[in-house]
Design a protein around this nucleic acid. Structure first.
Length: 165
DNA sequence: TAGCCTTTGAAGTCA
DNA sequence: TGACTTCAAAGGCTA
């Protein structure tokens, strides 16, 4: 199931879960969850969250253990980071994420509670959706796997098609 | 090439 | 119940 943001919001938020090209147009909405259209993926089809090559890699690693890797749902600040990172990178002319994230942390704290509430609400919906999709999942399952990761800076649409869900 | 840096928040464990 | 730990994103940097 994939949630698409179709409702108007005070602040435009890009979809956190981005479908590979060509797949989105083949989907039909199957319902509405929290005011958002929910799509069902075709049988045997999975997708990867945007820029989630790492998750895809983790999935393949975990498949050795017959345990599909389920990524932790992002919190409100993570959603804010994802949305604003490119703006700050362009603004600062700096791709150092440690520095960029420091700036975004400061900006996050300077946001009004109303502005932050948009992201909290978004994160809450993603948590609920995640809980529906993976009712048995616990964040503890991912402990100890982060530092075993193999990082790849880029991913292809083909990679994005083969993530677990 | 694996892991750190850097941020906030969620969620889990433990005393 | 509070303190603590780990992971979520992300790409440059370091050993």
């Amino acid at each position: 199931m994939v949630t698409a943001h179709t409702t108007e919001r005070k602040k435009q938020i890009q979809p956190v879960l981005t479908l590979p090209q060509g797949l989105e147009q083949n989907l039909a909405p199957v319902g509405i969850v929290n005011g958002e259209l929910v799509f069902a993926l075709p049988a045997g089809t999975s997708f990867a969250p945007q820029s989630n090559s790492l998750s895809q890699k983790r999935t393949s690693e975990s498949q050795d253990e017959n345990q599909p890797y389920v990524t932790k749902p992002p919190n409100a600040f993570m959603l804010y980071l994802k949305e604003q990172r490119l703006h700050v990178v362009a603004e600062l002319q700096c791709k150092n994420n440690a520095q960029v994230n420091t700036v975004l942390g400061q900006r996050w704290r300077s946001l009004s509670s109303q502005e932050q509430a948009i992201y909290y609400e978004e994160a809450e919906q993603l948590r609920k959706l995640h809980a529906q999709q993976h009712p048995e999942w616990s964040s503890v399952q991912n402990y100890g796997k982060k530092r075993k990761r193999i990082r790849r800076k880029y991913y292809t649409s083909a990679e994005g098609l083969s993530n677990s869900s």
